[in-house]
Design a protein around this nucleic acid. Structure first.
Length: 501
RNA sequence: GGUCGGUUGGCCGAGCGGUUAGGCAGAGCUCUGCAAAAGCUCGUACAGCGGUUCAAAUCCGCUACCGACCUCCA
């Protein structure tokens, strides 16, 4: 387990020590959503994963500039380089019979709501493609000037084959083999319209007459290619070369590969030192897709409004569920798995409440328990340094939960625990659960001015009297009735605690 | 078809050469008026077949399944 942060770099396919370009600072770019529809649950997983990465980098003391774009133009339906292909936003606008920018607004707002629900921190900058048309046009020009772009009938294409041959870079990220790309031409050269080669891709597209979203450019009235926005905006806000580029692994090809090509083509340098790819969210063993019939929206998952699940799961349970798997592994969403996560989440939160309420009876000494706990604390940190291993770090927190419960239970001896170890443990739990994992307490009404707790104190007191008189009828009635109201009573040796479910 | 990756106990999911992952579920016990919670103990694993090694879930080969990408996708 490493003492310093190590990251699995998709570019090199190796785990490497993380070294930022500028000491103490990190620039991170993550491909955001195309806002033509409600957010896909898979999007949420990716952004939750990067949220934890963002939070952990800050925890390590880095000043992080986290850029996550909003794609609001250029993403086409179907064949991406076909003039008749429709822009995703435009298409939706036509269906809903409103302006494209109304679509963008509507689904951007919806996206932000979901991000907030899942407790994802907003990125430092959230640039939109339509706000950076000028930068994109400039980049197209640079690519042309450097000999990697060519214009045909108002559209501009990236000369992939030329770039691939000259740079030796193309295909590195996604593991494509250059020969395969080149030989592709024999198969479908015939039906290519304007491109010199099927592997070439549009960086500027001339708009068909009926195309609504269009801007003036030196080549035509048109719109930028999808891959271009990320190159242009990452360069603008993070520089020509920055630290981390992230996204779902389904973007590796062609999106990220083409992004790399564009950056090289424009400025002759590699955009990011470390590439991170999150893996897919599966539903009952397969990637969610409409044809398989295993899709579920965030709202349906939370509301329990789907035949795929037996009940609704809260956003924090879903977040916890996500933390139990490594970001680079596929995660299978199942009803049983979610139920397990729900209980695990509660157990962890309960342990934290117990822990934070601890006061050390007497300054303990350095016993076996002390070193055991100190070791687990250190290991938690090291697990996160190992490529953000949240499931492993979480496992350590659970091992610590046993210790916490043991102390509360009287099973473990306070004498064997030193004051500063307890303080460290409190600090660890607090920062991991809330700051790094981004979990939070749920179902807390708040703002009742302590009325509820006052009432509960009274009720528990009355019930305590009944119990003292062995009036089990009354005491059980109170407990049962409260249970119906989702208030759970637990009788401990030294009193009764309550919580709202 | 091509290219990657995966196959771990009832379920989810870590580990990637020697050591308990963890969560959930299950069994027994302790505590308790009962319950809940908690604690203690326990069981069932590394797809199959070969190989390398003192030692393999972990490395290599083959086979069988599964998935992703190759076309829009987080």
């Amino acid at each position: 387990m490493p003492k310093t942060l190590h990251i699995a770099n998709s570019l090199t396919r190796k785990k490497e020590e993380f070294k930022p370009i500028h000491e103490g600072r990190v620039g991170m770019y993550v491909c955001g959503p195309t806002v033509y529809n409600s957010v896909h649950l898979g999007n949420c997983r990716t952004f939750m994963s990067f949220d934890v990465i963002y939070r952990y980098l800050m925890h390590l003391g880095y000043k992080v500039r986290y850029v996550r774009n909003i794609t609001d133009v250029g993403h086409l339906v179907g064949d991406s380089d076909d003039h008749d292909a429709e822009d995703k936003i435009s298409k939706r606008a036509r269906i809903e019979q409103i302006e494209p920018m109304e679509i963008v607004q509507k689904y951007t707002v919806g996206f932000h709501e979901k991000m907030q629900l899942f407790n994802c921190l907003p990125p430092s900058i959230e640039p939109r493609a339509t706000q950076h048309i000028i930068e994109q046009i400039e980049m197209v020009q640079q690519i042309i000037d450097n000999g990697y772009g060519y214009e045909k009938n108002g559209s501009v294409y990236f000369d992939t084959i030329k770039f691939a041959k000259e740079s030796g870079v193309y295909g590195k990220l996604s593991g494509r083999i250059l020969d395969d790309l080149i030989s592709e031409s024999r198969d479908n050269l015939k039906n290519q319209s304007e491109k010199n080669h099927p592997a070439d891709f549009a960086i500027w597209m001339k708009a068909a007459p009926e195309h609504i979203m269009r801007w003036n450019s030196p080549w035509s009235e048109g719109f930028p290619g999808w891959h271009l926005e990320c190159s242009a905006m990452s360069t603008k806000y993070l520089g020509k070369t920055f630290d981390i580029h992230g996204g779902g692994n389904d973007l590796k090809f062609p999106h990220h590969e083409n992004e790399v090509a564009q950056n090289h083509g424009a400025c002759g340098c590699h955009p990011a030192n470390y590439w991170l790819h999150t893996n897919m969210l599966l539903m009952n063993g397969a990637k969610m897709s409409k044809s398989v019939g295993n899709t579920i929206t965030p709202d349906e998952l939370i509301g329990g409004d789907s035949h795929l699940i037996s009940k609704g799961y809260s956003p924090m349970v879903i977040r916890f569920f996500n933390l139990q798997a490594h970001y680079s592994s596929p995660l299978d969403l199942t009803d049983e798995g979610l139920q397990a996560a729900e209980k695990g989440y509660r157990r962890l939160m309960e342990a934290n409440k117990t822990l934070q309420a601890f006061t050390h009876p007497d300054g303990g000494s350095d016993g076996a328990l002390n070193s055991e706990i100190a070791k687990l604390i250190a290991e938690t940190e090291e697990e996160m340094n190992d490529d953000f291993n949240t499931p492993k770090a979480l496992a350590k927190l659970f091992e610590l939960a046993s210790k916490i419960n043991g102390l509360k239970d009287g099973h473990l001896d306070w004498e064997a625990l030193a004051d500063d170890t307890l303080a460290n443990l409190k600090q660890l739990y607090q920062s991991y659960i809330f700051d790094i994992f981004g979990l939070k307490e749920e179902g807390e009404s708040g703002g009742d001015n302590g009325v509820l707790s006052g009432v509960m104190e009274l009720v528990i007191d009355l019930r305590q009297n009944a119990r003292a008189n062995k009036d089990w009828g009354t005491s059980d009635k109170i407990r049962d009735k409260l249970n119906e109201l989702n208030v759970v009573l637990k009788d401990w040796k030294d009193g009764t605690s309550w919580s709202v479910n």
